[in-house]
Design a protein around this nucleic acid. Structure first.
Lengths: 110, 110
DNA sequence: TATTTATATTGCAATATTACGATATTTAAT
DNA sequence: ATTAAATATCGTAATATTGCAATATAAATA
């Protein structure tokens, strides 16, 4: 025990969970917000923006990339990380689906 | 080490991370989807819908509730769990913010 | 080529999560 | 009052995550 029973769930459920999980850490939220703020790729200065060590930041970037939230290219001496739109569209769609549904058929038992 | 450095991040970043983290498990995605599908509160049959034991499901429900994704009332012999709209609006707003921003100023370096 | 700069990887300790059996709690029904 | 039901909590094992120091890698520059 201890490991998530991934194979007992639908593919789409696992996909959404992976995306959500990737965003389930304040440092990774901060990275995304910083990407938006500077309105460009991360090229070098992300470590100074976060209250974490360089290896830790690198690890968080890796997780965001693995989950499909950001994408990265090698850019000379540094790495260029950007938001990966398809990944974010997928999770945004999930929440839109939920809230649209709630607006249509408001159940009020709670 | 090992624990998230919550106090080094902004309150809003921690809030969003908590919400996203709560959805970062396929069982909890499945619970939300089931709540939408039946279009009512969960009253008893959620355990049969999931490939997990009753204590595990109970634990997942608790986490969703703590994070503010669902809310629950005692309803006689069972518990009535519903989607908690404010929580979902908050995280939906985050993703809308991101995708709106991306549409406006599309950076194309990656 | 040596050095600097930027990022990644390794290894490890601390902590958190996941899952479930056993048990407790709480309410409804007998 | 007992029993049945539904859900929660406890205890615990297995696994995952978080964070960083040390080290590796790779490219730019002196």
């Amino acid at each position: 025990m201890g490991a998530t029973k991934t194979d007992h769930f639908a593919e789409s459920q696992n996909e959404l969970a992976v995306l959500a999980k990737a965003l389930g850490h304040p440092a990774r939220i901060a990275i995304i917000e910083y990407l938006l703020k500077v309105d460009a790729c991360i090229c070098g200065d992300i470590v100074n923006e976060l209250p974490l060590s360089q290896p830790t930041v690198s690890q968080h970037l890796k997780e965001l990339k693995n989950a499909g939230v950001i994408k990265g290219n090698i850019e000379g001496n540094s790495i260029c990380y950007c938001i990966n739109e398809p990944g974010l569209e997928k999770i945004k769609g999930f929440f839109e689906h939920i809230t649209n549904h709630l607006e249509k058929k408001r159940n009020n038992c709670c």
